[in-house]
Nucleic acid binder design. Structure first.
Lengths: 388, 388
DNA sequence: TTGAAAGCGCTAACAG
DNA sequence: CTGTTAGCGCTTTCAA
């Protein structure tokens, strides 16, 4: 039977290690080098060890510290010996021990990325973005699943203190004040939050909400229902306020149902609530809820978009092939991940590729969203053509 | 601009850290304990450090080694001092440094999980399973994205040698011989592979293929087309052979198109090939390809299931809400991840929950698959009812 | 049962 | 430019 017992405060951390821009943690040859021990070992018997800088030092006749320099700070070493040492490292199949490195230097060349639910497709794209950008810089990623809990988030931020040089919070459940305080001891970048003095990456879904409302208005709607996500979500409040603002400006009515958990399964209740509210057009907190609504509406015989227009948010995997395909606010999610990492690495003093103007400040970067119109709001789809 | 440069042999590693069954890497209180330094530091000025066992030793008047024992091997310490030390650890907000721990003990309490594409929904479930099982045991997960490359896989296996005590290969691109060789120095469990002498977890999709074919036959089909996945995939060959076998037994005809990359985007070409082959029923290597086919077939006016029955494989996120919903072989993917971890922890001598019979052997565990019939193969769906 | 001492592999002062 | 020396925080002999 599967073992389901949980530890209190358990958190999930994932680490993305990549080749470095110094010496990669990867052997050059087909396998890791090993050495049959000649120096005295505790156990007494000769056993194979992995190659260390000492082995390279012995092989090249220099001091271990010189090997360390040749590998980590090549400029500080005579060109000839540098090459000789690097060659020996390759020959021996040397792989640096990142733990030892971190222990002495205090720097881990790793970044923690905290997500609230590792199984939410939204985060796949964020993670892909952070991963790519970190890989490009030769850094390592620790992926933390906070499981929608602020407590787990705090615990994780403590736990990773020695394992990462900084962190990206993509869905913090902490207060702005808490985040700001943590940012004083741990370099932080937040996504979709705006705490004072902490660099942040914002996905401009409010801008997308405006486009969505305009779109619905152009289809003749005068009433729009907001299907809210979790109360603890900052984005949720932000989207709702954007909706209220644009509705006032355009002179249409808005209403709100929810909160709903950000899962497909929540869509059924959301759909029922929407039908019960007499809505003909709704904007859902995210695509998961919207997709769940589509299924429930069909089950109830409510046609989309003829009887009800549905707009999602994020444009996650599945939004284009659900039934009907979902009109949604397409967010540059992967890019948000990349930008967050670039900002963080910038603060950490690492070279992280080109340095876009202003990204290194403590300010916020807002990434534009655009509406992708599909059948869930449009006029009825044309009926299928016959096979060609 | 996003920085897209890649490092040769770059690999992605993710680590899942959790509370331990010894002392968790997590502070008990609201934050990590720190100490204002009184002992001489390199920089000279007093700075805050994290609490170490030495601080606890000073506070309790015992030697650091005793603190270490009280925390790691409580049995080897006098009951009274043990409790005193543990209390002091709590009070000071001590968090063990896992790097230092690994450096001395050689054990990391971490397991590497290698996947071929972190953005493939199939692996989400595997990862969730491994993560849960590792979390339950207080272990840590390193997630490695090998990006469909055997070279990256080898590089990663070398790189993680000091970072993990063992590894799970979920989609190896290596040969059986290579895997077997690596297994001799690194404890390994493979998923959906069957190399000699290496414990493996098999998802019984061949069994599912048989059910799928029976289902298609029961719908009147006498010809089945296999839409192949990547040539490098072991599962792909295995499914094809299972299909050939059952087809022979049932006296139906089979054909094959492909290979196709395991992405939704590959579905278009696959659908075209299927139409071109005159197929009326096809079984796709996986759901991603099948979902892509559905879109393309609709685009071409080929009705599913009236003109063509489509069966997928895996039952990933999206298979139930695509259009039409996909008949597919539902695999216990998450469970496979959990079982793999239990087998590995068993070999590593760790307590990993209940110990199912036989799982600890070097043999293979086969997990059953079942067919989930949805509209993509069934008779035409009933037309929607009116709103209630 | 406890303490002293050595050292994991590496980096970083400090001399030379 | 290079070698010597001292640790990082922890575990683990070995004695007491």
């Amino acid at each position: 039977m599967p073992d389901e017992r949980r530890c209190p405060g358990a958190t999930t951390v994932a680490l993305v290690a990549t080749c470095g821009n110094r010496l990669p943690d990867v052997a050059i040859g087909p396998s890791v080098g090993t050495v049959t021990d000649t120096r005295p070992s505790r156990s007494g018997d000769t056993d194979v060890r992995r190659v260390t800088i000492r082995d390279i030092a012995d092989a090249t006749g220099v001091a271990p510290s010189t090997v360390s320099r040749a590998l980590s700070l090549p400029d500080r070493v005579n060109r000839a010996t540098q090459l000789r040492i690097q060659q020996a490292a390759r020959d021996l199949g040397y792989v640096p021990n990142s733990q030892a490195r971190a222990l002495t230097s205090g720097r881990t060349r790793a970044v923690a990325v905290l997500v609230s639910d590792i199984t939410n497709p939204f985060y796949f794209d964020v993670i892909r973005g952070t991963q790519h950008q970190l890989a490009a810089a030769g850094w390592t990623q620790l992926l933390v699943d906070t499981e929608e809990s602020g407590e787990a988030e705090l615990a994780a931020l403590n736990a990773i203190a020695t394992k990462a040089d900084g962190a990206v919070l993509t869905a913090s459940r902490l207060s702005d004040a808490q985040i700001a305080r943590i940012a004083q001891r741990t370099p932080l970048v937040v996504v979709n939050r705006r705490p004072e003095g902490v660099p942040s990456v914002l996905i401009d879904t409010p801008g997308g909400v405006e486009q969505a409302v305009q779109h619905l208005v152009s289809l003749g709607h005068r009433d729009v229902l907001y299907v809210a996500g979790p109360d603890s979500s900052w984005s949720n409040e932000r989207r709702w306020r954007a909706l209220v603002r644009v509705a006032k400006r355009l002179g249409i009515r808005v209403a709100r149902v929810g909160p709903h958990a950000p899962f497909v399964d929540s869509g059924a209740a959301a759909a029922d609530a929407a039908v019960n509210a007499g809505a003909t057009a709704c904007i859902a907190f995210n695509d998961l809820i919207a997709i769940g609504m589509l299924a429930r509406l069909r089950e109830r015989g409510v046609r989309v978009p003829e009887d009800m227009s549905v707009v999602g948010c994020d444009d996650i995997f599945g939004a284009d092939f659900c039934n009907p395909p979902l009109t949604t606010m397409t967010s540059p999610i992967e890019r948000a991940g990349r930008v967050a990492i670039r900002m963080l690495l910038g603060r950490l003093g690492a070279e992280s590729g080109e340095d876009p103007v202003g990204e290194h400040t403590a300010g916020a970067v807002a990434l534009p969203t655009h509406l992708t119109v599909r059948e869930s709001t449009g006029p009825a789809p044309t009926s299928p053509r016959r096979p060609s």
